[in-house]
């Protein structure tokens, strides 16, 4: 394919819209992962949570013929898996990474196992007539050229992803529980000494992360595609973890980072036709995440040094004052 055709493809409204669509199932779990990460409980099970929700949503919507019941069941299943993670991590003292790995294995195996029992097929749920979440066309906006194509006509989940970024931000920085949550993540002993129930806060954070991850999973199986496929999350739960760190552990940063991952994915698809290896393009955000980790670490070190410097100055001032008296 000639270069100009590909370039025209990339700088088009349709391409921008596809980036948003591809990013959505990363934004949602990333926001969830951000909440639990800030509370000090890294949620490796985002991947498995998404998978279980995607599966439950499809199956329940197929058997009840109700999209809404499917969504509800999917959310409940995802939250239940997170509750299991919270139980093992907080009540049974299981290392959260190992418990997360176990739940991911269970989600992968369990969904394929049940899919096979229900449909006799291990690959996908195409024999089930499952529901799809409707697409929203925004009146007036949809008629504006370019912006209409980019911003209108997405599934509810895409709009929810942006709305939830704002809500998560408000929750983390403007509510009492959010402040407690960040305090618990920053220094659990100090938070506990101030009377904050560390375990309770972490349990809430994990349940919230499960809720958000389940939305991401449902987005995959009931909007992005309208079937469940085995391993259909294909690493998005881990990309979500990366987006948190690429985004500097802030809601807006996480949103942007998730979109960058979506962009790289979409670009990889487009450039494949140019004989530019899609693998190299898709690699970029992962390399960027490592760079972001380094930058973040350097900044933290600088902050600590600055704080230490200030502390020493103040000590010196106090000492000078004392000798002056």
């Amino acid at each position: 394919m000639p270069l100009d055709v590909v370039l025209r493809g990339i700088f088009s409204a349709l391409f921008a819209a596809s980036v948003l669509r591809i990013s959505t199932p990363v934004i949602l779990p990333a926001l969830g992962g951000l909440i639990s990460d800030l509370a000090g409980s890294i949620n490796i099970a985002l991947e498995g949570t998404m998978l279980v929700s995607a599966f439950t949503g499809v199956v329940v919507s197929a058997y009840t013929q109700s999209v809404w019941l499917g969504l509800l069941a999917g959310i409940l299943a995802g939250v239940a898996l997170s509750a299991l993670l919270a139980f093992f991590h907080l009540s049974m003292n299981t290392n959260i990474i190992l418990a997360g790995i176990a739940l991911n294995i269970m989600a992968t195996g369990g969904t394929i196992f049940l899919l096979y029992i229900l449909t006799g097929d291990k690959g996908n749920s195409s024999s089930l007539a499952s529901g799809a979440v409707p697409v929203i066309n925004i009146p007036l906006l949809k008629d504006i050229p370019f912006f209409g194509t980019v911003l209108s006509g997405h599934s509810i989940f895409t709009y929810l992803a942006f709305l939830l970024t704002w809500l998560v931000s408000v929750f983390l920085y403007k509510t009492r529980l959010g402040v407690h949550l960040r305090a618990v993540g920053e220094n659990p002993e100090a938070a506990a000494s101030l009377g904050i129930n560390v375990k309770k806060v972490r349990a809430i954070a994990l349940l919230l992360s499960g809720f958000l991850a389940s939305l991401g999973g449902l987005n995959l199986s009931m909007a992005y595609l309208n079937i469940f496929q085995r391993d259909m999350t294909s690493g998005r739960g881990f990309i979500a973890l990366a987006a948190i760190y690429l985004g500097g552990r802030k809601p807006l940063g996480t949103l942007i980072a998730a979109i960058i991952f979506g962009l790289a994915d979409a670009l990889g698809n487009q450039l494949g036709s140019l004989k530019i290896p899609s693998q190299l393009v898709q690699m970029i955000p992962y390399v960027a995440t490592i760079v972001a980790l380094v930058v973040y670490a350097l900044r933290t070190q600088a902050q600590v040094r600055e704080r230490m410097h200030k502390f020493q100055q103040r000590e010196a001032e106090i000492a000078a004052k004392a000798s002056g008296d």
Partner: peptide, 22 residues
């Protein structure tokens, strides 16, 4: 039976072994 049942067994083993409080 599909082989994926074993993944569920594996997960249960991990959880039971790592749960320090059991």
């Amino acid at each position: 039976m599909s082989r994926e049942m074993v993944l569920v067994i594996q997960a249960i083993i991990i959880l039971l072994v790592t749960a320090e409080r059991v």
